[in-house]
Design a binder for these strands. Structure first.
Length: 775
DNA sequence: ACGAATTTGATTTTT
DNA sequence: TCAAATTCGT
């Protein structure tokens, strides 16, 4: 017992020793939250609480396995159920789903699958979607589900065309999903909430079953999750929520920060514990983070402190472009490793969007520094993997029309669009699944002999797979591969892509084998459905090798809960962080600020923030503006470096703006001394907006936006529409050329130009320096 | 019906 | 830039 409290501070002990009644742990970054939670679990067990009565819920699989493992160490042999919300939902639905219309063998559709369904529904219902994309509609449906608005309770708001469309599409979509025995991610929560709401006896049973519920990252819960948690904490109100409003970064997914801000109102008898001592970062890193987050209006004030060292100044570096940014970071890491003081795994590079990883990757590769990118979804999301799994899915759930459409003609068996249309008609008329429609294809007059034959053979194959579904997963998938002809089609192709597809399928088999072995060892779980469920709810992020000695590259969202000795956050630029889509709304802007906060507070000893003057993004070059967040950090904690290369010709040539007022420094602040650790680097003033409203840096954005991009100042005079096929044009670098192809209009207008000396090039005209030749 | 070729359009974050 | 959608040719 006493061992459990060793090395814990007062606040932490209070939390660990809390047994009954609601508990709210407000845990700042690096405050030892996971430690407290796991120790509390161990303490509960010591107090005689049965392991089965404890339920710990997290958002990510990564967090779940971390917690599970650490609890395992403290209390060996007492298997506490640690699960993600979605897995928990899935488990509940397998048990009780029939009560809300969900078949026991349901399939979980990922975003692209459910998007597919939505498109079909829109088509079938002949809904006029006006200018709203399926994405937009899907998003609205998702938002509704997160708020527990069901198809019957959804009401179109007057004056909102989108909501009118949703009111039409949502019920049809949901019906189609249920018909296919499929649920989407949001359904996993919504159906459970519905279940509990409509069946008080089940609610009571679950409340009693899970007497002690622990929730991690409570600030990220949405309404559905909130309702479920409350329902599980009614007769036994032992809900322990951990979270930090300042780390709420999933508002866009329906997370309601109000849940944590109002926890005390929801549970008046709550015991609140604040963990404010940080054990992770240096004083200076923490002050930078703290100053930044203090700019948020909607938050609970916290006083973060640490007894750690003062530490080095946080570095803020301005680079000329992303390649220099990447190269310098790679170089820094490389020399630190070579000096023997650090391992590659001490370093992490964070960015706002995945697309920004490219230059970093390239530079690290070039510098010979090992790295790993943590990106979700990749493996199970690959086409070939989904194709193979679709056979299994269909065998497990014959109503799964998405799986049917995916597998029926890959590899191609002569069942094309027309035949599928016929099948769909038949299925619609008789209210059957596509698989059953295929079974009856002899009765379907619209089908050709050839198609009928293929379909019957396909049905036979699925039946065969279904028959052996009880065997090991490896065997099932092996059968699919052997009998579907999928790999043969790949083997006979000489496309290099297909070669790697084959390898991926091999890997899938290995994965399945491992799953079988694990299930065997654990004497539980296993089976095809369990495996499929894992592919639906688990991504690679979860088996990210923490052990490997590699630099970690990840998006800011993926960093939550992690820490690294040295952290780089790149692209602190306006429009990237904060992201451009969050510019108008204060709430969203604050979320971006929290995102930056989360990234910064991952750093233990060293932190470098950087931005770039010119960024190539989505194939376009833009003059970048330093993030406004940089102005909100305390400059006395930071060391500013302007890493301009000595030769500036390139930029002077291409960017008039570069030497203009736009980046002029604030004369009132004296420059920091140059420490000269990098050649060609000089200390400079912090770029700030000029006084008064409408700072000059802003002016660029506006101009750039007006012209549909940057680097247009010199070229705006030439409208893209003056160009015509066959016209002779002049390019400042490539010289004269002839337009051989044109497409698009306005700022999207593109041209292919055959140059006399430089060969063929393609341009987006609005952003190119091309001009018609005179005369 | 199929695959190649071309065009278009869209790009945050994740269970 | 890159993937999806559409058109085109066989």
């Amino acid at each position: 017992m006493s061992a459990l409290l060793d090395n814990l501070n007062q606040a932490q002990r209070t939390a660990v020793l809390h047994v009954d009644g609601p508990l709210l742990i407000l845990a700042g970054p690096g405050s030892g939250k996971t430690r407290v939670v796991t120790h509390r679990i161990a303490h509960l067990l010591e107090q005689g609480v049965h392991a089965r009565q404890i339920l710990a819920l997290t958002f990510t699989n990564k967090a779940a396995s971390e917690m599970r493992n650490r609890a395992q160490v403290l209390a060996p042999g007492q298997p506490v159920w640690v699960s993600t919300f979605h897995r928990f939902g899935a488990r509940m639905l397998r048990e009780f789903g029939e009560l809300v219309g969900v078949s026991q063998n349901f399939t979980i559709y990922d975003t692209s699958d459910s998007r597919q369904v939505l498109k079909r529904v829109i088509e079938a219902e002949q809904v006029h979607t006006m200018h709203f994309s399926p994405d937009r509609i899907a998003c609205a449906i998702s938002t509704a589900k997160n708020k527990l608005i069901t198809p019957d309770t959804y009401e179109a708001r007057r004056g909102s065309p989108l909501s009118e469309i949703v009111a039409q599409v949502y019920p049809a979509y949901q019906q189609r999903m249920l018909q296919s025995a499929a649920v989407d991610f949001d359904d996993l929560l919504m159906h459970v909430a519905q279940l509990i709401y409509h069946h008080p006896e089940i609610r009571a049973e679950l409340d009693a079953r899970f007497r002690y519920v622990l929730v991690d990252e409570y600030q990220d819960t949405n309404k559905a999750q909130y309702v479920i948690l409350k329902a599980l904490s009614y007769d036994y109100p032992n809900l322990a929520a951990t979270g930090d409003p300042d780390q709420s970064i999933y508002g866009w997914r329906g997370a309601d920060i109000g849940n944590i801000l109002e926890f005390e109102r929801d549970f008046p008898q709550v015991h609140v514990v604040r963990l404010e001592q940080n054990y992770r970062s240096t004083k200076r890193i923490l002050r930078v983070a703290d100053d930044l987050i203090a700019h948020n209006k909607r938050r609970k004030k916290k006083s973060l402190f640490t007894e750690n060292d003062e530490g080095e100044a946080v570095r803020l570096v301005a680079y000329a472009d992303q390649d220099l940014e990447a190269a310098d970071i790679a170089q820094q890491i490389r020399s630190a490793i070579e000096s023997g003081q650090c391992r590659a795994s001490d370093f992490a590079v964070f960015y706002r969007v995945n697309a920004l990883s490219r230059s970093i990757e390239r530079a690290l590769r070039k510098a010979g520094v090992p790295y790993q990118m943590v990106r979700g979804q990749e493996f199970y999301g690959r086409k070939e993997i989904k194709d193979v799994l679709a056979y299994c899915q269909l065998a497990n759930n014959p109503a799964d029309d998405v799986a049917f459409e995916r597998s029926v003609n890959s590899p191609t068996r002569g069942i094309g669009k027309k035949s599928l249309e016929r099948l769909n008609e038949h299925a619609y008329r008789y209210g059957t699944s596509l698989l059953d429609a295929a079974r009856e294809s002899k009765l379907n007059e619209g089908l050709t002999k050839r198609a009928t034959n293929s379909l019957l053979k396909f049905v036979e194959l699925i039946d065969k797979i279904a028959a052996i579904a009880g065997e090991s997963v490896e065997e099932v998938i092996g059968t699919v591969i052997a009998e579907s002809g999928y790999t043969e089609a790949l083997k006979s192709s000489d496309d290099v892509e297909d070669q790697s597809r084959l390898e991926n399928i091999e890997e899938l088999l290995t994965d399945a084998r491992q799953f079988d072995e694990q299930a065997d060892e654990a004497h539980e779980g296993g089976g095809l459905e369990a495996y499929l469920e894992r592919t639906w709810l688990v991504n690679e992020t979860d088996d990210w090798e923490t052990e490997a000695d590699k630099v970690t590259l990840m998006t800011l969202h993926a960093t939550k809960g992690l820490e690294f000795p040295v952290v780089y956050v790149v692209a602190l630029e306006d429009g990237i962080l904060p992201h451009e889509r969050s510019r108008d709304e204060l709430e969203q802007l604050e979320e971006e600020r929290r995102l930056a906060f989360v990234g910064i507070t991952r750093a233990k000893h060293q932190l470098q923030l950087s931005y770039v003057r010119v960024r190539d993004f989505r194939g376009q070059r833009r003059v970048a503006i330093p993030s406004s967040f940089l102005m909100e950090m305390p400059r006395e904690e930071m060391h500013m470096t302007d890493a301009r290369p000595d030769d500036l010709e390139f930029f002077v040539d291409d960017f008039d703006a570069y030497e203009s007022d736009d980046f002029e420094t604030d004369p009132q602040v004296s420059p920091l001394p140059n420490t000269g650790e990098r050649s060609g680097a000089r200390a400079t003033n912090f770029p700030r907006p000029q006084a008064g409203e409408g700072p000059v840096v802003r002016a660029i954005t506006t101009a750039a936006e007006l012209a549909g991009g940057a680097n247009t100042a010199r070229h705006t005079k030439v409208s893209p529409d003056v160009f015509a096929h066959g016209m002779t044009v002049i390019h400042p670098e490539f010289g004269p050329g002839k337009i051989t192809a044109l497409s698009g209009a306005g700022k999207a207008r593109r041209a292919t130009v055959q140059f006399a000396t430089a060969g063929e090039r393609k341009f987006v005209l609005a952003h190119s320096p091309l001009r018609p030749a005179q005369g």
